[in-house]
Design a binder for these strands. Structure first.
Lengths: 341, 341
DNA sequence: GGCATCAAGGAATAGGTTTTCCTCACCCTA
DNA sequence: TAGGGTGAGGAAAACCTATTCCTTGATGCC
């Protein structure tokens, strides 16, 4: 393959046709395996294309075919920790099918979002993926765009629009079962702001699973606060005061778990011997950096992204989806819940 | 503005022209403020466009004009912690000029990279930004692509190609001056693998600045290791053994600094009273979550991205850049270096 | 030998926009 | 009144590709 382009102007199919001594139409057929052509002609065209470093102009193709093999991705949280893996998974599902992704960060500004959507529509993307910070429902990006839209890690207030989110309730259950399975019976839960839907779902999943295993913790025992290590430290002190015999804590994020771990150890409790800890996010720099490393629930965000992309592809292909799809979480066991036996 | 599209087919300029009772060419001129048209005609066309929710097909425009107002962004580190802010800054500089960004993650796989570049070229992007994990030089993505390329947070082995990177040497100097300015005189440096160019540059900047302030630390005293909290903990123990009177440590990342801080405090040293700590990255979840919060050097990655994008725009506009551009870092002072007075 | 069939490839069209060049009518001046 | 200038807008080319329809020559069959 000679170096990509002749630097000046990219070769067009017209150049290829001329070089191969055939018409444009014939060249097109040869390159796309269409029509009735002699073997030798195909080869000649292929050789010319190779020689000229020809690559079809996808703009022209898109203009003609009505499909651009391009999708838009809109994120509201500055490519944050959540939307990135989602993007990664989506890119994975799309990229392998030769679809390119336009990325747009709205910074949570509706006006900016509107203008991005306009731009994407003008570029004739085949579909849209909308991803957000957390799982809270948000205003629809538009229901009559003429192209399919899938939400990932967030949902539209118009609840019929397809959305893919992690199974937060399942995350809570997973945590409870893991802790109980490790022989813990006095559970605590320290988590983020109660206004987050995901927070409430996890808490209820956790409490329910505990209850049905005969271990008592009610949602009113849950400690809600900010998403900060600072709150983790503080909450640990509070919890130890109100429930000094606690032997395990489920933390709503790895950051919280770090704070909790730190605080507990300063208060002389050993992790996991005295108190076991489970975090959420499986955010490796946090979870692995902790001492001891944190058991954490991975929300499989890449799967969320992948599934969203697959739903989008199906919709583009004519099979739209509706409503919510949840993706199961996975618990990654590490030293912070190692059996104290 | 009536709801975006008529759901079925997007309105074209032909529809607008028909509705306004003018020819296509006239409609185009009216919408773009070109040509000689009566005021009333322009208004009529504008009204029709609004009514039909017309937005020009950017594919067609790109096909015709040779410019797509689109750039490709290639990252090698899975949208990691470094390339994201860079992307953000770039998107900032580009987005406000109505340029859309194709995002591609190569996962460090040259074959994948090649195929992405092909795809972007086929989509006739106007330029390329290549961003990487750290600042190490990498093989060129191609020097005869026919479109300008700018590297950000990484450089091409072909050193003439334009690249924008943070001023790592300056980061080291900043750290040294800050610590010395806070009255510290026995400096240590714990950092990442010596094979990283950025690591060596920071170390030499740090040692030089210290030397020229009359404080002795040689590059041979630097502790090199992995980029992990674990290494931070271990290195702190080593350092305290070999230099028990150290009163300040410059850490090559916030993660390292977290490990160091943790380890020091377990060994009974107070931060910052006994030992002051400076990290690098200003990675907020890490730096703010630490106790005490970490002073850290912000590499202003968004500025790196912004500048790269600006260079790219200039190159697209006909004024290509060459060689290295460095972006200054900024020290964010927090409690870990609060004067012990 | 005439006709249908078939292989091979050319010509033309569509897709949506911008831009250049034309046309047409009108007014002004010599 | 002829010629030129001008204001307003139309027609058509150009961008590049894929596809549909045609043409051409050759072959096979009755």
């Amino acid at each position: 393959m000679p170096d990509q382009a002749e630097s000046a102007r990219r070769a067009t199919i017209r150049d290829v046709a001329a070089q191969a001594g055939v018409s444009i139409g014939t060249a097109s057929k040869a390159l796309n395996g269409q029509g009735k052509l002699r073997r030798e002609t195909r080869d000649r065209v292929a050789a010319a294309a190779r020689e000229l470093g020809f690559a079809p102009n996808l703009l022209a193709r898109g203009l003609l075919g009505g499909r651009t093999y391009t999708v838009g991705m809109i994120t509201t949280d500055s490519f944050g920790r959540f939307s990135i893996p989602v993007m990664l998974g989506a890119e994975d599902a799309l990229g392998s099918g030769q679809i390119s992704v336009f990325m747009c960060d709205t910074r949570d500004d509706p006006a900016r979002e509107r203008s991005y959507v306009e731009g994407l529509l003008s570029r004739r993307v085949d579909g849209l993926i909308v991803t957000g910070r957390r799982v809270e429902p948000r205003p629809s990006v538009g229901t009559r765009l003429g192209i399919p839209v899938v939400y990932a890690m967030t949902q539209s207030l118009d609840s019929d629009e397809p959305a893919v989110i992690p199974d937060d309730r399942g995350a809570g259950q997973l945590a409870a079962l893991h802790l109980i399975g490790a022989g813990r019976h006095r559970l605590g839960h320290i988590t983020g702001p109660e206004r987050f839907l995901a927070v409430r779902k996890r808490a209820s999943g956790f409490c329910e699973a505990a209850a049905s295993a005969g271990v008592g913790i009610s949602t009113s025992d849950v400690l809600y606060g900010e998403w900060s290590e600072q709150w983790g430290r503080e909450a640990a002190r509070i919890l130890l005061r109100t429930a000094p015999d606690v032997d395990s804590i489920f933390c709503g994020s790895d950051q919280l778990a770090r704070g909790v771990s730190d605080s507990l150890q300063r208060m002389g409790r050993r992790v996991p011997d005295d108190i076991a800890l489970v975090g959420v996010d499986n955010w490796e720099p946090m979870a692995l950096g902790a001492d001891p490393p944190l058991t954490s629930i991975d929300m499989c965000l890449e799967d969320v992204g992948r599934q969203a992309a697959e739903l989008l592809l199906a919709a583009i292909g004519g099979t739209p989806a509706h409503g919510l799809t949840t993706v199961p979480c996975r618990l990654i066991a590490r030293a912070s819940t190692r059996s104290s036996a």
